[in-house]
């Protein structure tokens, strides 16, 4: 099987704190991989290393390799701007720009060279359709994105990532700030998107992981305890910590 992305012996340090220990994980194309674990286990930190988002934190240091095809993402020479175009990200809280719905989507593609209005119009529609948001927004594309509900905003953020046609989409607890109905819509959306993209999702909702993911990695204290097919991991975990966690004994 072709790996879209593989991390090899990844370590992340915040100043003195060693947040992620020797994590090696492969992410397959057109699959959803869930990262689960108690809060503070390093799963979000790991995810943010995959598109070099941790560069934003001055005290943060990342060692090890992250291979995307033959490129090492964690290489000093890597062009992070080009990289982040290929690896999209959706955050815990919806963070649309202070711009119109249309501009939220068109901003990235226009910057990356799509100048023609017809192309952009088309892309905005496609992306909103993919995020199942078109019908709700087609009449107010040029209104502020902040007029949307939280769930709609989050789907807009997903549409914004999709518009750049990335290879991989990283999602950092994308539904944790949303109500149950919005959450289930996001989950449906993720299931549809995996037809095209490799999706890595951090969640602390185990049921969500079980519902939507193909593979699951269980993080504990900065290490990967177990990484397997989701069904296998939830029904027949090989490690005691995993079974303790999924049966709700801690975390």
């Amino acid at each position: 099987m072709q790996h879209a992305l593989s991390a090899k012996k990844l370590n992340v340090y915040y100043g003195e704190k060693h947040a992620v220990h020797d994590v090696s994980l492969d992410f397959a194309e057109k699959q959803v991989t869930a990262l689960i674990g108690p809060s503070g286990c390093g799963k979000s930190t790991f995810l943010r290393s995959l598109n070099r988002m941790n560069d934003l934190i001055p005290s943060c240091r990342v060692t090890g390799d992250i291979m995307m095809k033959e490129h090492n993402i964690n290489d000093r020479e890597t062009d992070v701007v080009a990289l982040r175009k290929k690896i999209g990200m959706v955050f815990q809280r919806p963070n649309p720009f202070h711009k119109s719905i249309y501009e939220n989507i068109a901003f990235g593609p226009r910057y990356h060279g799509m100048k023609k209005k017809a192309d952009l119009d088309n892309l905005v529609e496609q992306s909103l359709r993919k995020a199942a948001l078109w019908d709700e927004t087609k009449d107010r594309l040029h209104k502020s994105a902040f007029a949307l509900s939280g769930g709609q905003q989050q789907r807009l953020c997903i549409a914004r990532s999709v518009a750049l046609r990335p290879d991989i989409i990283l999602m950092d607890e994308p539904s944790s700030a949303l109500d149950p109905i919005s959450t289930s819509r996001i989950e449906e959306l993720i299931t549809e998107l995996k037809e095209e993209f490799c999706i890595v999702i951090v969640t602390h909702n185990m049921h969500q992981a079980a519902r939507i993911s193909d593979k699951t990695a269980f993080f504990l204290s900065g290490r990967v305890v177990e990484y397997d097919e989701t069904d296998k991991l939830f029904l027949d975990p090989s490690q005691k910590e995993t079974s303790d966690y999924i049966s709700g004994r801690f975390g």
């Binding site: 080009a82 060279g113 799509m114 100048k115 192309d119």
Partner: peptide, 16 residues
């Protein structure tokens, strides 16, 4: 067409 316009941009790397 979109793919092409993306790729062109990428080769030139104007953002650097």
């Amino acid at each position: 067409n979109m793919e092409r316009s993306y790729n062109k941009r990428q080769e030139a790397k104007p953002h650097i």
